[in-house]
Nucleic acid binder design. Structure first.
Lengths: 353, 353
DNA sequence: CTGAAAGCGCTAACAT
DNA sequence: ATGTTAGCGCTTTCAG
């Protein structure tokens, strides 16, 4: 395909060291030789073999990124920021997704480490109590967590303040007069941020005098929310407001409610979390806690870079969130209670996200 | 971080060759030594350095993937299929996105080639007449195009039949009685599939006796569709049906029409292209040409693998599409012409997709 | 079945 | 300013 540096050197009538110097801009090369090398490279269509360089320099100038899934736009957006930041710094990224499977996490990380990535950006299910992270710590592998929320000191993570944000969600519901509220979330055990959001939400409600809010866990991967919602709204005092732990889930919930004959926001208010851009385009447009995902991705890269260069400030970094008011929220209504329709047998197909 | 094979060998009291044989399962190792090596690897937490191996074997077992953007769910879905297929075959993937910028294409490809990827999966803007692809051909770099449509023989691509699919879209509109139809598309010059879809669409209309359909190009990246739609619908005989060249655009168009006071499908029918899963969840749910994106990704990997192993069948591969009927299409209505509202100054923010 | 040794493409220390 | 050379971690002949 492309020749080696040796061929280029012969072609230019210089030594491989000179060619190397030319390529890397290190040391100096006589103008006449610069020209000869340049020409040789062009004529031979030479591309330096990064593998050879990496072996020698013991660094690949690449990052490993592990996220649950690219199908959730919030991670795709963060990736955009990561790629952007990495490119600016001259780094390549290797992406692996776990499909929300915790067993994949160590496999993926080890694969990336085998590929000698210089650092890792990870979104794990659980950052507090995590053997894999402990191992990385003990091996001194540079990594930054993204979206994870952890109190463990020395563990560097980029995130919004999920607890505070969720508390604001509760406050908003209370302000609108909602008292029968509920949180719909993916498996709490599989997500420290879901846990933080629950904590903040319940805490916020408690401050407003509501102690009995229920939390419903759903299988987020397959998003079979219809059944759960059906039983939730079959109760004599169904919720008038739902906090969904992320936007993808919120959108699925709204769709499922529709098949049940429950209208948003007339019958029930919805607030999501993430601020994915599609949320602004749908009808009614989604009220949600906006995270600066792209910026978070960039920040994660920046921190990793800082760690690599020794300016290590290993701790949590919180970026600001914003409660974005859409049209899925409204004041609690006094109208007759919801009349539930039978869910159309919509053959809820596997709908990974 | 992790030791080298030499350390493992010393630790196990064998030579590095034996360790290598053990790791690769090639050649045979005495059971006693197997055990000693296994133990040494475990104790030292050894991970073979893939860089060293790659340099020696002159293959990385990795693919380079270049797509326009991960923010468009259709590519994220294809990536899922690619990752899946690659993983099964023991390959890693390196992803680069061009953000729809044609200048980035050669840069990205050369970067991946410098990283010695064993093959490429590419979505380019233009597959027919493309210097970069010509270069890859002449350098004999193994690659497979994805989503691109080309007639150039020997150029391997995985796609649906965009022309046929778009023709079906036209037929559907005609069947519903629409005569004033229009296509809204990203820059045609920047997408061979958009071009193919236009060709099929216009051809289908022509077969139904419609010769005057207009095609409107929009800046897809920034999705500033409101203005274009406003002038389109300000005409005395505005279209009653719109074919959008992809679902992300269709969703943006529906949102923009909403701000203009134009309702879908009452005032205008919409058909998209791609079949992204979010399209099924929105209200009204999107009528679209469904592509089997995940499957296309897998197929692309399979073909690349075939090419690498010499079973080269270098040609276009068409996967079946399906016109999925949603709720954005309906018969043409006889009601009064659309009354246009002024577009709310929605501060159309940059909304990359 | 095992070990010694060469060498993949490159960089960097050293010598000139 | 330039060339020579060692060696990064690994696989793979080739002898034994």
């Amino acid at each position: 395909m492309t020749p080696t540096i040796k061929t280029v050197a012969e072609h230019a009538g210089v030594s491989i060291a000179t060619v190397s110097r030319y390529i890397n801009g290190f040391g100096s090369v006589r103008p006449a030789n610069v020209e000869r090398v340049r020409k040789a490279i062009e004529e031979l269509n030479f591309r330096p073999n990064v593998i050879g360089r990496s072996l020698r320099t013991a660094q690949t100038r690449s990052f490993g990124v592990m996220i649950p899934s690219l199908a959730n736009p919030v991670f795709a957006e963060a990736m955009a920021g990561i790629q952007e930041g990495a490119k600016e710094a001259g780094y390549t990224t290797v992406i692996t997704n776990t499909d929300y499977s915790i067993e994949e996490e160590p496999v993926a990380v080890h694969a990336m480490l085998s590929n000698q990535v210089d650092g890792l950006i990870l979104t794990v299910t659980q950052a507090d109590d995590n053997l894999l992270l402990d191992q990385l710590d003990s091996e001194q592998v540079p990594y930054v967590l993204l979206y994870n929320q952890t109190d463990k000191p020395g563990r560097c993570a980029v995130s919004v303040d999920n607890v505070a944000a969720a508390r604001e969600v509760a406050e908003r519901f209370l302000l609108l007069g909602h008292e029968r509220v509920c949180m719909v979330t993916g498996r709490i055990a599989a997500s420290d941020r879901a846990e933080a959001r629950r904590r903040g939400f319940l805490d916020g409600l408690r401050s407003g005098g509501i102690d009995h809010a229920s939390v419903v866990e759903v299988d987020f991967v397959n998003m079979d929310v219809t059944e759960v919602l059906h039983s939730l709204f079959a109760s004599p005092a169904p919720p008038t407001a739902l906090f969904c732990s992320n936007d993808a889930l919120a959108i699925a919930v709204i769709a499922a409610l529709r098949t049940l004959g429950i209208r948003v926001p007339r019958d029930v208010s919805i607030i999501g979390f993430d601020g994915i851009s599609i949320g602004e385009l749908i009808e009614p447009c989604l009220t949600t806690v906006e995270q600066p995902s792209r910026e978070m991705g960039r920040t994660a890269v920046q921190h990793l870079l800082d760690i690599l260069s020794g300016e290590a400030t290993r701790n949590m970094v919180f970026l600001p969130h914003r409660l974005r008011t859409g049209a899925t929220t409204g004041p609690v209504s006094d109208t007759a209670p919801v009349v539930l329709q039978n869910p159309k047998h919509h053959s809820q197909k596997e709908n990974k996200t």
